[in-house]
Design a protein around this nucleic acid. Structure first.
Lengths: 121, 121, 121, 121
DNA sequence: GTGGTCTAGACCACC
DNA sequence: GTGGTCTAGACCACA
């Protein structure tokens, strides 16, 4: 996997999980790869994965059973959706709208850009 | 001024300048505060302001006259607008649209949030 | 059975035995379930039960007869009581009293909490 | 400093801070030692201190200012008191009272042990 | 096998 | 100087 330098690797891996969960991979209750397996797969130090998993656990997206591994939380998908959705609405959209106002971009222009984006998919 | 820990302080101050310039404060050619004044006002280390000013200069938003200080560039406003607009369209909007797709937020909902945002102003 | 992650599972199961013995279930001399039965009942790896039983044996609460199984020791109840009582007085109470001092909880308040606890039973 | 093996070192150091804050050292707003200083003082790896400080920050007992260090939160003392007090009343005391019941220790005996503890100070 | 903690030492951005 | 992240490698308790 390729990582940016703009964001901590352990967070990029966490985002990777968030996205996978949102996309419907990882059914609830499923065991995620062990710390060591993941470290090998991502070509990253086990400590870094450990940090990702702790972070996911703090956010109630996975839980841990002693000696067995980490498992996707029930309702993980809803949790992720809620976290991201909330962040979008509370933080990112207000910034966007404010920027649009200052840059004199109106909503019609946004609609066009939106169409262009989707036609590329 | 209050700073977040998520972004470098010198960049937060630069954004502050960008916004002020966009908002029409700072007529072209006007002298901006000296590094020391600004550092005092922002309760920040002068090195940090120095970094902000260098950054603004790199982006042709201010220019420097030895011994006199920093001055707002002619067409600074247009420069800022172009920089921000480009960044918005190339980087931020595609991310936003992708996030909307995953979170199942459609364009109608975005329009509503947009209205709510503007009714609060 | 539900386990917490804060304490080793084999110790949680051991505590379960301690409590049952104190509460008067498990007459002295009675055979306790086989390792396999217990593992099934607790939904736990047999190794884990094995560890519990060894631990109980080390504390003279059960004894083992080859080929027959594990049996509750004579005077198991008194043993458990002594172990727990000693642990309480030597380790837990001093910690509690020290915590009370720092948190400015006096003995009167403790008495009230004690009453509340018992009124709930 | 001497550490137990029963509990993670980074948590023992965190407890050390909790206790110091409760005891009234560390006025609010005061800067705590830098990660490196603390690591030297405690004869421990800087990473370990880093973990302690992150933990304290997660619990709103300290906050961080970029490049300057960690500072005791306003109301840190009340936060610590509330955390510990709540934990005592909700978790530890019920366990204690239940143990007392099973071990047939009555409240008078507790009072005696309490007196003995305090006469030792 | 699993996770969890720790050390040693490096590199980075930022103040 | 400050914190923050990462690697490499070790050791431990637990299932």
């Amino acid at each position: 996997m390729n990582f940016t330098n703009e964001k901590a690797i352990f967070l990029q891996i966490a985002d990777h999980f968030f996205d996978s969960i949102l996309a419907g991979k990882w059914p609830e209750g499923e065991r995620i790869p062990s710390v060591r397996e993941m470290a090998l797969a991502m070509e990253v130090n086990p400590n870094t994965i450990m940090r990702t998993y702790s972070y996911l656990q703090d956010n109630d997206v996975v839980f841990n059973r002693r000696g067995l591994g980490y498992f996707v939380s029930p309702s993980a998908k809803e949790r992720v959706k809620a976290i991201k959705r909330n962040n979008l609405i509370e933080n990112e959209l207000p910034k966007l709208f404010e920027a649009m106002r200052l840059l004199e971009i109106d909503f019609e222009e946004l609609r066009e850009l939106f169409s262009i984006h989707h036609s590329k998919l």
